[in-house]
Amino acid sequence: MEVYIIGGFLGSGKTTLIMDVATANMDKGLKVAILVNDVGSIGVDGATFESKGLSATVLPNGCICCSLVGDLRKALTSIRDEVAPDLLIIEPTGLALSSKVRETVAPFASSVKVVGLADIKRHKVFMKKKRRFYLEQLAGSDVVFINKCDAADEGGCEAAAEELRESLGDVPVIPISLKTGAGMERVMEELAS
């Protein structure tokens, strides 16, 4: 099975992106599974996926980049052996480091794609106040999408993209809007590549 890991800070649009990507791949006839891990013991995203007709495996109460590594392995084993999807999409918590999740997932997957999702509405404040965590969370992604560009002023998203390219090195950084659908072809292209 192929695996996508959709990382990024709390509220950046991970769940929204996953619903779009899952639906698009299911429309192509692929079998898609979703694995989600909310911060803390109470999850909301699992119910959100379910209420949109998508079934998701929920890993509650912990974080799959550290304390839940064992649980994550178990879930990956059972999804691979029992569900056997063509594609598994993983949403780690908004505080997780995707690069850690990749290490655990790699042995289970035919290929792993790590997506970093940034939020243009909070990009400036993150660069100022949470710079290290923000960059560390996006680091190690195969591609970074700056989301919510519908809400940015002219040129704001491109400037932020340039800033992230400088900080993250050799990673494509692409402005998108999951709300308007701007950049979605690029999203699908990057994921399929």
Binding site: S41, N61, C66, S67, T93, L95, L97
Partner: peptide, 20 residues
Amino acid sequence: DDPSHGEDCDCGGHHHHDHS
């Protein structure tokens, strides 16, 4: 003191508050 939150956790330091 969530015992599951390991020594070498790099997750962002969140604590879990379990009401159940």
